[in-house]
């Protein structure tokens, strides 16, 4: 479920120096934005928590303590030492569920963004490269998708496909995908007439090579930015769908679903709604900050030089 980052392949010395120079330049611009650095730190922490969840979590997420229903956080009157953030209505430890929930949220974000990005980029490249009727067809479909309020469309799709975490992810990916298609199309159109593309064409490169090997790598910067922003969007919408009972189904410790379960206790036990809500807020905020930082660092128009 969680992917380990593969160790860097050993590189030739000149190659590494090029990469290093690039990275140091990137980091220079990225670190100018303090918010982005903080966001990045929080995000790294979240990823670590998600990866090592089973080791950190004090309890199992589904374990019910029948004698400790709705226990307040440990620092409040009536709180218990063993339940740091208290327990929910059926006696499950809130902290443990939040830790496992981080896995779900990051997993949702990753899958949704990957899926939306791959389809969106392919459609966008095709539209931007060939123009003409291909472009019209693809972009009008994208326009139709964009014309619906995103959450409503996702709800409709889930209603058709049936509720569940996986279907919710497909629905959200479909809703987010036009943004990638549009962005890619615009970038491809501006790169397509550059001289290096013509030079590659003259060297005999075919359509596929031109589209995906020559042009696409030069369009990645805005896509990476859009990817991070969509990541937080996906988490938010998955939570919303979960809250509406259309996403992950109980007892899955997904943050939105946890919120939904806790709805009726909102006045009696503030912690059961506050902590999942805070978790969503912090995650989305951190990713958005990183996204902004990436935009500053990668967008050549904002670079002063």
């Amino acid at each position: 479920m969680t992917n380990e980052v593969s160790p860097p392949v050993p590189l030739a010395s000149s190659q590494t120096s090029g990469r290093m120079a690039r990275f140091s330049e990137f980091w220079f611009y990225f670190s100018v934005n303090k918010g982005a650095v903080i966001g990045f730190a929080v995000l790294v922490l979240l990823v670590l928590i998600a990866i090592f969840g089973p080791l950190i979590a004090p309890h199992a997420p589904y374990q019910q303590y029948r004698d400790a229903l709705l226990t307040p956080p440990s620092w409040q009157v009536g709180g218990k030492e063993q339940f740091l953030l208290g327990t929910d209505a059926v006696g499950r430890d809130l902290l443990s569920r939040l830790i496992y929930g981080a896995r779900y949220s990051l997993f949702i974000g990753l899958i949704v963004v990957t899926f939306a990005m791959i389809t969106g980029v392919i459609l966008g490249v095709l539209a931007g490269y060939f123009r003409g009727w291909v472009d019209t067809l693809i972009m009008r479909i994208m326009d139709i998708i964009l014309a619906f309020p995103p959450l409503l469309l996702a709800l409709v799709l889930v209603a058709i496909l049936g509720p569940g975490l996986f279907n919710a992810m497909i629905a959200i990916a479909l809703v987010l995908q036009p943004h990638f298609a549009r962005l890619t199309r615009a970038a491809v159109m501006s790169e397509k007439n550059r001289e290096y593309v013509i030079a590659s064409k003259l060297a005999g490169a075919g359509h596929l090579r031109l589209m995906f090997k020559t042009i696409l790598p030069n369009c990645l910067a805005p896509l990476i930015v859009q990817g991070t922003l969509s990541f937080s969007n996906a988490i938010l919408e998955a939570a919303a769908l979960g809250f509406l009972g259309m996403g992950a189904q109980p007892p899955t410790p997904e943050w939105g679903t946890m919120l939904a379960e806790a709805r009726e206790f909102i006045l009696r036990a503030w912690w059961v709604v506050t902590f999942p809500g805070l978790a969503i807020l912090i995650t989305v905020l951190a990713i958005n900050l990183v996204g902004d930082g990436l935009r500053d660092a990668l967008d050549p128009k904002l670079k002063r030089s």
Binding site: E195, Y196, A199, S200, P217, N218
Partner: peptide, 16 residues
């Protein structure tokens, strides 16, 4: 036949 363009900054793929 091959061509050489005016702008040396635009005629090389920056990612290649």
């Amino acid at each position: 036949v091959q061509i050489i363009f005016q702008n040396p900054y635009g005629s090389l793929n920056p990612r290649q």
